[in-house]
Every structure is written in C-alpha cells, then in structure tokens.
Amino acid sequence: MPPTVEFCPRFLTNRKIDLSLFLWSDQKSSDRSCSSLGEDAKLILKGVMALPVPAKGLRVALFATCINDLMFPSTPKAVVKLLERLGCIVDFPTEQTCCGQMFTNTGYFDAGLASVKTYVKAFEPYEYIVGPSGSCVGAIRHQSVMLAEKAGDTALAAKAAKCVEHSYDLSEFLVDVLGLVDVGAFFPHKVTYHPTCHSTRIAKVGERPYQLLRAVRGLDLIELPDASTCCGFGGTFSIKNPEVSAAMAADKARNVVSTGAEYVVTGDNACLMNIGGVLHRNNTGVRPIHLAEILAHQEGDAA
C-alpha cells in the first residue's frame, strides 16, 4: 500500500523547495532556480499531487554520520528504506566521514576543519543532504563556516555555507521538503520521546518529530517528564566530567522508566547511546530506538 500523501500548506511557500525537481530530477542543479516559481509552479504542483509516491525521483544524499556508520548502521539503513519508500533516489557519497563536532567542541578546531573538508567534498553537488541527527546536522549548520573562516579559508567557507543551506535533519526533510507527517509507518508500541538538546536548540527541529510520531499507526506516545533537560552526554563532557554526566543520565533514565514506555526514541544516536546505556545497565527492559527506525517500520516488519 502506498503511504498516505499529506501536503502541508508550507509546501507551497517554502523557498528551499524547487518543485520542478519532482518531475525532472535528472536536471542539473544549476539549471534550477527557486525564484522561477510562479504560474508554472501551480501547474507543476498539480502534477505532483497526482503522483502515487510523494517524492518521486527526488535525489537525496544521505549523511549517515560517523557514529551511525560505525556503531548504529540500522539507523542509516532505516533512512534508506524510508526515503526509497517515499520515492527518493538515495545516494551515499562515500567521501563523507564526520561533522567534526567531537573535535570542535573539545577545542581542536584544526581537526574539526578536516572533517568539514570531507563534508564539503562529499556533499557539495547535492541539493538535498539528509542526516538522521539534529546534532551532526546542527554542527554543520552552526560551526562549519566558522571553522573555515577561522582558518582563513574563504573558498571553503563559501562552499560550506552552500552545503549548510542544503542540509536537513531527517525530520525537517520529511515535514518541510516532502510535506509529510504521515510516512506510512506502523509501530504498535508505547514510546516516549526525548527531544535532544542539539536537535531542539541548534538544529531547531521543533515539533516535527512529535508530528511524525503522532502519525505512526499503532504508536502510543507518552510524554517524558523533564523532557527538555539534557541527558548528560555532551560528547567529551561524558569523559571529562563522568560523575556529573552519570548523575544527569541517571535522572533522564529514571524519567524514561517512569513513563512505562517500551522504547525511548530520539533523533540522535549519541544521546540514545548514553540513555540506553544506563537503561541497559539497570536491566530496565526499556529499549532505545532512533526515530528513523520507527518511521521506516511497517506492518509485516519484524518488531
């Protein structure tokens, strides 16, 4: 069964969207101009509305992120499954490594810059760069240009700025670009959502993950007490100040358990590794899961 198509009004007005993409995806990106929307757009939209899958032929570059690539491959696999189901053509530019925030946020700007270079090299040609992490996408958005400028590399800064414009967290891409909140997922479980700090306060994904989760069939979303409080991960903070980090993670895990949920879901696997680690150590039986894996899940898939 094709997923339910639901276009939000923003779809028409979002300046980042080039509707012509949906029909002629093989056109070169330089040929497309967002400002050319007008009467043509209405005609194109009519065509799009009639399509059986919402994002037919839309080419998307997957930014897997280093932690997912190495430690949590099920998450980028889920993104591939989900985006392909929605009609996208998914590329995985293999030059990519990391967003660099591990280095940048510890103070090692030169090492952070090396990662930014790999990001630009990998994603420069793409119009839509999608990563299942508010934190990594947030780091690219907030720090990549700063690092290049600090190093005096104006050419890289300009390229990075262009990449920033085209980089999306998965939830933003689904809701803003594809105009979807119902992606046709089925997940018959009680879950609670932890809005990770960088997804809410740097990437600013806002209500999008909640909208997406509420539209999942069978899913029972339970509110997490003190949801907006940090889980205590903080990258190298968890190693430099392990006692405070553990105290924060313990409080977060306690709040998760208090909801009675079977799964704790976030849009960032790093935070999930922290919360999930405490949940596992304490034999709570609550399992961590990434938002992408819930959205990719359909009836008939093994639980």
Partner: peptide, 25 residues
C-alpha cells in the same frame, strides 16, 4: 572506565553501514 562505570555500551556491529551499502547498493 569513565563511560562504562555508569552505563553499558553497545558492542559494535560486525558490518558497518558503509560495508552494507557497498554490498547492497
């Protein structure tokens, strides 16, 4: 130790995403 004193850590998978991609795509 700073990490694993308070929490368990998932074992890395036998196949990274990149390896899976190469095989499947």
């Amino acid at each position: 130790s700073p990490w694993t004193r308070a929490r368990d850590i998932p074992a890395p998978p036998a196949e990274s995403f990149r390896q899976w991609w190469k095989k499947n795509r």
